[in-house]
C-alpha cells in the first residue's frame, strides 16, 4: 500500500512540467526515503534525478518499495486538472497496475480522483558516484535561464568556462558570436540573488544549448541553480525543492574529435 499526501500540490505540477519535455516514460521509485526518479532522454545525452523526501509529505505511507512506470506527458495532463492550491494524494496498491491521483481543493468541497494505468518499463538505472567537481557555481535560476535562452538565439552550443574571473558562457553562430561573463557577487540584498563561485581548478566544457534550455523549465521550483563542472564528468544543474529534495539534471559534454 502506498499513500503520499502532498499539501503543496503545485510542487508536483512544477516537477512534471520540468521533466516532461526531456523524458517520455520513467519509473517512479517509492521507498521509505522518499519518492524518486532517475531517467534519461531518448538519446541518453541528459539524465534527470528527482528526490522528494518522505519528510516533506504530510502523510507518507510506503509499506514496501514500489516502482511505478508512467508516461510523463500523461501524468502532466492529469496534474493539470489539479488547482495550484490543491492537496495532491498519490495512491497505489502493492502489485497493482494502476496509480490514483486525488486532488482536494483548499475549501475541501471538491475532491477529484484520476486513475492511471502503470507501464512496465525497462529500468536503466545508472550509478552516479559522489564526485569532487572542479567548479561549483550558484547563481539565480532566472539569470541562468535568461543566458541559455539568449545564447540559443545565436548558436547551438555553449562553452562554459569557470576561471578566477567568473563563469563565462560563449557561443558562436552564423550571425556572429557572444560571450556572457557572470562574476562572483555576494553583495546583494537577498542571498538568493548572489552569484557564488567555488573553483578548485579552471574548467571549460562545451554543451548543447537545447538541453540546458530544457533544464531551465525547473526555474519556478527554485530561485537558485547550482551548476557543477568537472572536465571528466557531465555537468550537473541542481534545483533545490524547498524542504523536500531536489531535481538534478546531468548533461554529457561534447567531446573533442
Amino acid at each position: 500500500m502506498l499513500e503520499l499526501r502532498l499539501v503543496q500540490g503545485s510542487l508536483l505540477k512544477k516537477v512534471l512540467e520540468a521533466m516532461k519535455d526531456l523524458v517520455t516514460d520513467a519509473n517512479f521509485d517509492c521507498s521509505a526515503t522518499g519518492f524518486s526518479l532517475q531517467a534519461m532522454d531518448s538519446s541518453h545525452v541528459a539524465l534527470v534525478a528527482l528526490l522528494l523526501r518522505s519528510e516533506g509529505f504530510e502523510h507518507y505511507r510506503c509499506d514496501r518499495n514500489i516502482t511505478m512506470g508512467m508516461n510523463l506527458n500523461n501524468v502532466s495532463k492529469l496534474l493539470k486538472c489539479a488547482g495550484n492550491d490543491d492537496i495532491i494524494t498519490i495512491k497505489a496498491d502493492d502489485g497493482g497496475d494502476t496509480v490514483t491521483f486525488m486532488f482536494e481543493n483548499p475549501k475541501q468541497d471538491k475532491i477529484s480522483d484520476f486513475e492511471m494505468k502503470l507501464m512496465d518499463l525497462d529500468s536503466e538505472h545508472l550509478g552516479i558516484p559522489d564526485a569532487e567537481y572542479h567548479a561549483i557555481v550558484r547563481m539565480p535560476s532566472l539569470e541562468f535561464s535568461r543566458i541559455c535562452k539568449d545564447l540559443s538565439s545565436i548558436g547551438d552550443t555553449v562553452v562554459i568556462s569557470v576561471t578566477k574571473e567568473g563563469i563565462k558562457f560563449s557561443t558562436r553562430g552564423d550571425i556572429g558570436n557572444a560571450n556572457i561573463v557572470c562574476r562572483q557577487n555576494t553583495t546583494v540584498d537577498k542571498p538568493e540573488e548572489a552569484t557564488v563561485i567555488q573553483m578548485n581548478e579552471a574548467v571549460s566544457l562545451t554543451f548543447a544549448l537545447r538541453y540546458l534550455n530544457s533544464f531551465t523549465k525547473a526555474t519556478s521550483l527554485s530561485e537558485t541553480v547550482t551548476i557543477s563542472l568537472s572536465s571528466e564528468l557531465p555537468l550537473v544543474a541542481e534545483y533545490k525543492i524547498a524542504d523536500m529534495g531536489y531535481i538534478k539534471f546531468y548533461l554529457a559534454p561534447k567531446i573533442e574529435d
Binding site: M40, S43, H44, V45, A46, L47, E124, H125, L126, G127, I128, P129, T157, T206, A208, E232, L233, P234, Y250, A252, P253, K254, I255, E256, D257
Partner: peptide, 14 residues
Amino acid sequence: KGSQGRMESFFKPV
C-alpha cells in the same frame, strides 16, 4: 564542434 557524449560513457548501469 566535436561529437556528443552519452551518459553511459560517464556513469555505469547498476
